[in-house]
Design a protein around this nucleic acid. Structure first.
Lengths: 252, 252
DNA sequence: CGCGGTATTGAGATTAGTCAAGGATTGTGG
DNA sequence: CCACAATCCTTGACTAATCTCAATACCGCG
């Protein structure tokens, strides 16, 4: 179950066996969360949720009553780690499908960060990646709906491939069109229409909870998708990093 | 000139006199950048730009040729500190007005982070704040244009007040409506129309490069502006922080 | 089989974009 | 200090994108 988590963190840079084991130990005793439920209820700032399986999202409910997702949370994603407390208090974390979640004590995470440079670096990387992705979503919001959806599908494909939840050109996606609408900031009806347009163009299809990209290169080009913002290259060897004990160093 | 910079960083938590002096020393020898010019040209990853005066922005140019801002950079803002290198390579930093900028050697910043816990914490805070703001911009993108602009004006007022560039209800804003359009993801013409609507509603005016909020409470309510996402409360005393030497601790 | 949620489609309303023109403002050089 | 150029602002008319409402079809599940 910890596979996706480790797989993802190792993108930041190599982990030692010891670090891997410590991280793996964090993933014991998961709890189920059923679809459409909030994963964090109340002000549980002392625990950091880690998604082990299922699709979740960070979101906010606007005054008009509509919801806007600011990011998806996929298996292996550590959520609201740095933005609980005074940060991101207004954002909620909800399960889109039924999920398996582990609540990691924040203090335990702190210990690991203080002890293991690799873990410190990895968690730094997670945060910077979030920032990069958030900004890409802002940019994506200025594209027309069709490109916007194309871009999102490419992002999902790429991120799910990383954790072996997608093959070369398709992935299971048991999420409603309404959820995607809230992720894109457009209406559910329009999602449906745009989806048809992509199907008609021979770019992608979505049926039986499975999204299939018929023309991967074509969809990426159309959606102006450049995976650079996903920071899969990790912190990079060219980055100045005076000491792995200093998380900031990793990214600066 | 370092006033805004220090003022801002101290929001994360108190700095010692020594830390303050070190930070102040970073702001020597600024260079001018004229309006409409990129502040960082080429791949100058070894230097971190700090805006001392003027309005700048992080932005990206889309395939269609239009530009989208992902954030403003105001006096005192340290830019692309953590997202240069592999992070945010596709984002550019441009001056909206003529600016005064200092290029801080990245290595020097690293030294300070490793040496001073207060500085380490402050720079961590800067990053998390950026994330929080980016997500708020995503949310704002789903509001209708009028509310979107209202929200932005509230954000600007609040952020500029912090560095004494705004009084109770107005601030100088020598930026074009086109720039605001790119920040909101709407057309310049529509910005103008929406502006008129706000004026007609008696909420705000913009003339002579000065934005005046006629009804601060009204505009905030209309734009659904809640300053929580700006993280002005800093890292908070309630946050677990095992050691100030560990930047991650501050925010987690 | 029937029910509830979801998907799909159409028609009309609304929001926002584009194009175009004229007016205002700013900056510059004589 | 003025004239000019350039940019920016403002507005109107039209177009395009998207939303809302509503009806129907589909699907999984009990």
């Amino acid at each position: 179950m910890a596979y996706a988590f480790l797989r993802k963190l190792e993108r930041a840079g190599p982990l030692t066996d010891e670090e891997r084991i410590e991280l793996q130990n964090l993933t014991l005793n998961p709890r189920p969360v059923s679809a459409r439920q909030d994963i964090v209820t109340g002000d549980a700032v002392d625990r950091v949720p880690l998604i082990l399986s299922g699709f979740a999202c960070r979101y906010k409910v606007l005054q008009a009553g509509n919801r806007r997702l600011v990011s998806f949370a996929l298996p292996g994603d550590l959520c609201s780690m740095h933005d609980a407390g005074t940060f991101g208090r207004d954002l909620r974390l909800g399960a889109l499908t039924s999920c398996s979640v582990v609540d990691i004590p924040r203090s335990r995470l702190m210990e690991l960060i203080s002890t293991y440079p690799g873990i410190s670096r990895a968690l730094w990387w997670v945060t910077l990646r979030e920032l990069s992705r958030a900004r890409e979503w802002i940019v994506n919001d200025t594209r027309p709906a069709e490109k916007r959806l194309a871009h999102l599908l490419c992002e999902l494909l790429t991120c799910l491939q990383l954790i072996d939840l997608a093959n070369e050109n398709s992935f299971k996606f048991p999420v409603s069109q309404s959820d995607v609408a809230d992720a894109l900031g457009i209406s559910p009806v329009h999602v449906n229409r745009v989806l048809r347009a992509l199907r008609t163009s021979g770019l992608a299809t979505w049926s039986n909870q499975r999204i299939t990209i018929l023309d991967v290169q074509g969809l990426k080009a159309f959606g102006e998708f450049d995976p650079g913002y996903l920071c899969f290259e990790g912190c990079g060897a060219d980055m100045p990093m005076p000491s792995t004990q200093r998380p900031l160093a990793c990214a600066s």
